[in-house]
Simulated scan of single mutants.
Amino acid sequence: MGQRDPRIDAYIAGSADFARPILTHLRELVHAACPDCEEALKWSAPSFTYRARILCSMAAFKKHAAFGLWQGAMVMGSLGRKPDTAMGQFGRLTGVADLPGKRELTGYIRQAMKLIEEGVKRAPAKGGKPRPPEAPADLMAALGKNPAARAAFDAFPPSAKREYVEWITEARREETRAKRLVQAVEWMSEGKRRNWKYENC
């Protein structure tokens, strides 16, 4: 039987009111479709693994939730929504009704399981190496005053740089942004990524 992770319970409980029913529905549906799946937190979001490989994941944001199959492009092909609408293949979810029906979604999950069973690897992203994000001027200025932090930032892969850039630029208030800048530089001076707390979970 699959394994449940209490951190997923906490994640769902801490999500916005609209998101909790969506995440609960998805969680139960994934376990019903794949009884041997195991839960984990990956990139700070609930994920489900099957035979030690990622099967799918879900996440809650301020105004929407998202769900995606790790090999969604191979499972859904052109049926999947555009990747810029939200994480995953099902767009911005604001209610359970935004998802396909139980039978359809179960079919997608089982197709993804079959790919894992057959040893099919996820296709590499098109376009070669991901481009590093455009760092804001205030971040670059702060890094310029701390050589250790700047060296760590420069050595990070694009995904790690993007996590810091998005965290800082998504701050709504100037005070919040300033605090995040200070915290980011401190963590980077210690060689830490933005989500370092979760990397060894």
Rank of each mutant, 00 (worst) to 15 (best):
K82L: 14
M76G: 07
L23D: 03
A73E: 15
E163L: 07
Y50H: 11
S78M: 08
G14K: 01
D138V: 09
D154R: 13
T106V: 00
A123Y: 03
R194M: 07
R81K: 15
A184L: 13
G127I: 08
P158D: 05
A13K: 13
F18K: 10
R180W: 07
N195T: 04
I116C: 10
A52G: 08
H25M: 10
D98S: 04
R20D: 03
P100M: 07
R110I: 00
T85P: 02
G91R: 06
H25T: 06
R194N: 04
V120M: 14
E170C: 13
K179D: 15
D5W: 08
H64G: 13
W187D: 06
F156H: 07
P124H: 09
A19H: 02
E190L: 14
G101Q: 03
L181S: 08
K129H: 14
R193N: 12
R20H: 06
K42P: 12
G91F: 04
K192V: 00
V120I: 15
A135F: 00
A40C: 07
G88Y: 05
A65Q: 03
W43A: 10
G91Q: 01
P46A: 02
R162T: 14
I8C: 09
A178W: 05
D17T: 11
P133Q: 09
R177P: 10
A65K: 02
M140N: 11
D138T: 07
A148M: 15
I12M: 06
G88I: 03
R180E: 09
L69W: 00
F61T: 08
L41Q: 05
Q71N: 14
K82Q: 10
M188G: 09
H31G: 08
N200L: 12
T176A: 05
M76T: 02
A184H: 04
S15K: 02
S159A: 15
P100Q: 11
Y50N: 09
R27A: 01
M76A: 03
N146Y: 11
A13M: 06
Q3H: 12
C37V: 11
R103H: 05
Q111N: 03
S47M: 11
L79P: 06
C201S: 12
R173I: 04
K63P: 13
V120Q: 15
A97Q: 13
Q111P: 05
R53W: 05
W187A: 02
V30N: 01
W43S: 06
E38L: 10
M113A: 07
W70V: 09
A10W: 04
R103F: 01
H64D: 04
R27W: 01
A149F: 08
R53Q: 15
A13T: 09
M87C: 04
R193D: 08
L181P: 08
S78Q: 12
W187G: 01
D17H: 11
L99W: 00
E117C: 11
G95F: 00
E134D: 15
G68S: 03
C201N: 10
P130K: 13
G91L: 06
A33G: 03
W43D: 09
T176R: 10
K121D: 13
L105H: 01
Y164K: 00
N146W: 00
A86V: 04
G88M: 02
L115C: 08
G14S: 13
G128A: 14
C56H: 01
F61K: 10
A52Y: 11
R177I: 07
N200V: 06
A155M: 06
I168M: 06
I12Y: 05
R131Q: 14
K129L: 12
D154K: 12
R27N: 00
C34Q: 07
P157V: 01
G77F: 00
M140I: 15
I168V: 06
A178F: 03
